[in-house]
Write a protein that binds this DNA or RNA. Structure first.
Lengths: 237, 237
DNA sequence: TATAGATTCGAACGAACGTTCGGTAACTTC
DNA sequence: GAAGTTACCGAACGTTCGTTCGAATCTATA
């Protein structure tokens, strides 16, 4: 009973996650109010939760921690979501969807494969550093969600991966290069996701400068022809 | 009482972690037997624990999970270590110390800054892929340990970071380049640590081939002069 | 101001957690 | 084979966990 809405959806059907109270679901005239009282409160709760999951990890954080941080009773929280797992799911879905949405917006008016890769990197770092807590939760709690919710997040992740892979393969084609797309994507993801373990705003560059540096590092690595061993300027493709 | 040996050491003094029963502590004639019954059993327990921490995360894994996996009673486990936290500490310390030890061995007979950087990367990936579980625990549970144990692991981490930084600064000097050592180290760490999230032995290259690819990607990125924007061959240093 | 629904709460539930304790069995040393 | 140490276990301790329930309070509309 408690797990009623757990696995009774159609596969691929997203969880509502709002207990049917939100004005998000479109009325007869299409999307309308997206900022009901309920939605605003839920959004604040998600931010509090992201901060706590970021600090103590998903498993290490308790609903009592969240209730304390949000200034709301433990029982009251459950008015806004179904379970702790649902909470993580909502955070990850919203974060992932937003970063993809912003990326597609920025890619609209971009010409040239190299420029588009730079935009990908800058968008990622911009959003990462502006939403450190949620992005750490997205990155660090990668394998935490199971079953339906996990599958849905993993699907979004594949979508994001695919976008990056396509950009890199366009680049490869445009410049007539040879490299493994998979390796390039995952190497790049490593570089730009790892920042949550070290970036300190008082010491390190800001997002846009960082994006510039990392783009250069990565693109030079990908664009330049591999020299076979040592001291030999011209080499095979 | 229960936390007696928790914070009563001198700062910097490592935890024994063996409850004084190990033959590890040198006798009068220097180091002798390193493989007492106790040590061998402990080592097996650490492997089981690494596997479980890897699968479910440190917080998500229970001592009962470990007792089941090790085929030993819950109470019996505590004969070998003080606490769950101690367990994580022992895994991380041993893993980190071993990877550094092997690196220093390999660096002994290596000439040329570039070659030494390649060795660093190869050693890291070799060990990572041969000890995936422990390395994931080391990497993923980075901020889990607190207080004394956490400080000690963090010190080893700084040592490892420093080794890499020195290698890269040697390279920069030798080739007369200009780049941020910190950014290069952390970018490289991102690339080579991220593999635990994606490497699939049935699909991906093995450690040595992967090390070759990543070394090329990274070194080309670092070694090649930065071109300012677009289509301009010669640029500033 | 009456009413319906949305929102919040205190209190409690059963389950799972890390750890401890007293005792038994096994091994080592003389 | 007695004595002493090491290895291990069943059972329980006290705490914390995620979640639920019924009731109380707020808010918006008529």
């Amino acid at each position: 009973m408690a797990l009623a809405n757990m696995e009774t959806r159609l596969p691929g059907e997203p969880y509502d996650g709002r207990k049917g109270r939100s004005a998000f679901h479109a009325g007869k005239g299409g999307d309308e109010i997206v900022d009901s009282r309920f939605d605003r409160r839920l959004s604040k709760l998600l931010h509090h939760a992201a901060r706590i999951f970021c600090e103590k990890g998903y498993e290490g954080a308790s609903m009592r921690d969240l209730s304390r941080a949000a200034g709301m009773s433990l029982a009251g929280l459950y008015h806004y979501f179904d379970s702790k797992e649902d909470l993580l799911y909502l955070i990850q879905k919203h974060t992932f969807r937003t970063i993809i949405e912003r990326l597609q917006e920025r890619l609209k008016d971009a010409k040239g494969a190299e420029q588009r890769v730079r935009i990908f990197i800058e968008n990622h770092l911009d959003y990462f550093l502006a939403n450190k807590e949620a992005m750490k939760v997205l990155t660090h709690e990668d394998e935490t969600l199971k079953n339906g919710r996990g599958a849905e997040i993993r699907a979004i992740k594949r979508e994001y991966y695919r976008i990056c892979l396509d950009l890199l393969e366009d680049l490869r084609r445009e410049k007539g290069l040879q490299f493994s797309g998979r390796l390039a994507v995952l190497g790049l993801f490593g570089m730009i996701n790892w920042i949550y373990t070290w970036h300190n705003p008082r010491v390190d560059l800001d997002a846009s400068a960082l994006a510039g540096e990392m783009s250069s590092l990565f693109l030079r690595g990908v664009l330049n022809p591999g020299k076979p061993k040592r001291k030999s300027a011209k080499a095979n493709a």
